[in-house]
Amino acid sequence: MSSTIQEDHPGVADAAAAREAFAAWVEAAEEGRVFGQVRVKAVEPGIYSLRHVEDAGNSDLRLHEDPREAREISKTTEGGEYRPLKSSPNLRRGWELRVSGAVDLVVAMNYLYPAGVVHWHAHREGRLEVTSYRENAARQSGIYKRVQRLSDEGVQDTARACCEDAVCLKQTLWDVDEETPLVMDRGEGDIPCPEPCSVFVSLARRVRLFEREKKRDLDAIGLSPSEKEDLAALVEAAATGHVDFAREAEFEKPLNERRMRYRRLTLAPKLRPEAQPVSSA
């Protein structure tokens, strides 16, 4: 599913037009706009204030005036954990960025939500090029080549585990392929996701490994080795009262949030076949 970005130049977004459109969009709303977890507001024409959406009424914020300081702001969570995915809903609070002019505004936005503004604009104009899972997987190589063999069901479960608003604020626009739409809550946010990202592909690779063991290594009650590993880790964590969560994109470890979200979709129904499917949000 590809559409043209510019009539005469397919695949080339117009970053300058996006910049002006974004600044105008922000200026048009007196209370500002919410983009991801950031409230962007024009405090006077051409002067923009950015802060965490939950810091709207907070006057005790650390002020930054260099738009490139947005990179440090977006790098770690409140608890100091590295954020490999900037659209995760774990942007830290306590800061205000005050920048002058649309160029600096977009510099800051691109560190908070990389390529978010240009994709927002292209999507609004109906010209955002979208790449399906299968198209993306087809070009993978090396250790990621195996994601080509991930089943449609595996793609669906991975997307629900990796892309819903609870873990990513982008609006998922891509599908499994042209005929197979994703069945999930795609999100309501203003930042479009035109293609599976590297975090998604990395989780997809892990899920493909799970699929392979399901075929050959199931025990008498139908559990795979990695499912048992995850259950053991959960039992251990609960028994000691110490849950040592894996890092956000550390999918090879049992106590990873997205890996557990995948287990909720695929393992929980196996353990409780009589129960209603859990809402995945």
């Binding site: 080339v12 977004a13 970053a15 490999p84 995915l85 900037k86 691109n110 990389p114 390529a115 240009v118 994709h119 292209a122 293609e195 990202c197 590297s198």
Partner: peptide, 12 residues
């Protein structure tokens, strides 16, 4: 492995 991806860098 981080954003922006190479895939989207030219867009920006």
């Amino acid at each position: 492995k981080e954003e922006p991806s190479m895939r989207h860098a030219l867009d920006t």
